[in-house]
């Protein structure tokens, strides 16, 4: 199963639909990394490669240590490609279990839902522009 990735302006949105297998995570990683660094074709209105990625976990009912580690790794890799990652929609029970396991997502921002995540990314991207090099 492949996670569909939507492109919204400068932001990529990946909505994980169901419990993803380990292979699924690796595929998602490859797909996101490929798209995050890709410049738009000549003549498009958008001139830059995607600056942000939102990963929506609102329908995930389990995030075990492997999935969390994969996700954090993806965020770190995307940062190397110049894109910020925001993880949205982690459900209360999932957040609780992740905290109990001692798992964090140090490399990604978090927001309660897609809307809040997009707003956060927009601010981050603007903020980066203002304090260039910070």
């Amino acid at each position: 199963m492949r996670v569909p990735i939507l492109s919204l302006g400068e932001v990529l949105v990946a909505s994980i639909q169901d419990a993803l297998t380990d292979r699924g995570w690796r595929q998602l990683q490859a797909d996101l990394l490929a798209q995050a660094g890709r410049r738009p074709p000549p003549g498009s209105r958008r001139k830059t490669a995607p600056r942000g990625v939102v990963i929506d976990l609102s329908t995930m009912d389990v995030m075990d240590s492997y999935a969390t580690r994969s996700l954090d790794g993806i965020a770190r890799m995307l940062a190397l490609r110049g894109a910020e990652t925001v993880v949205v929609g982690i459900q209360p029970g999932v957040a609780f279990a992740m905290a109990q396991l001692g798992l964090g997502l140090a490399s990604a921002g978090t927001a309660v839902d897609l809307e809040a995540g997009l707003a956060l990314l927009a601010e981050q991207v603007r903020g980066d522009g203002r304090h260039h090099g910070a």
Binding site: V87, A95, M98, A99, L120
Partner: peptide, 12 residues
């Protein structure tokens, strides 16, 4: 600390 971490995972 765990409660805070879980809250952060949810964006708060």
């Amino acid at each position: 600390a765990q409660a805070c971490e879980a809250a952060r995972l949810m964006g708060a």
